[in-house]
Amino acid sequence: MNTDRLEVTPSGAQVWSQSTTLFQRWRTGDALALDELVRALSPVLWQVVRAYRLDHGQAEDAVQSTWLALVRNADAISEPAAVGSWLTTTARREAWRQARRARQADPLDDDVLERSTPAARSAEATALERDAGNVLWAGVSQLSERCQRLLRVIAFSDRPDYAALAADLGMPVGSIGPTRGRCLDKLKTLLQEPDKEVPRGQ
């Protein structure tokens, strides 16, 4: 199956080039460019941090922390074109910290959650109308947590950093590419046979 084409920058490539321009303008003295950068990228950062199963409050906290980190550490970004990946990497790190904090407070472990979700999800899935976006949503909802996170982070990152991703997901760097391919294959199967139960665990 051809997953190579997915190597190209995912959706909204222009948001990343726009970010580079805005960051440059901000760093050369245009204070309003920072506002525009926050407006353009906050919705993208939201998607990145929500891949980590954070509730709304925690997700928002992670997005704010990411922007505060940018303001405090802007000098560390020497190459304006790197601002997009710096922000998504920082957002993932903040989300990861939040998720760890939440897990400490929450007696439910991952296994319990994993086992309790499929029924709820299929009930939800059958209730959905069958337009393309909902079919895709229903399919993605049946993927494992790990697959969902991996695909979502890649979909909203500028040149995803596989080394950092691997660390987050507890996987060897070399297995990110193949795992991504397997997640997409599984999704494809689910979309072709929406009612078939696919073994979980990937």
């Binding site: 959706s11 909204g12 993605v140 979909a155």
Partner: peptide
């Protein structure tokens, strides 16, 4: 499956909250 379609799907099913 295109990542662009996946991105659009997530944006419409779990959009950033107003005020973010």
């Amino acid at each position: 499956i295109q990542f662009a379609d996946l991105a659009e799907m997530w944006q419409s099913h779990d959009p950033a909250p107003p005020g973010l």
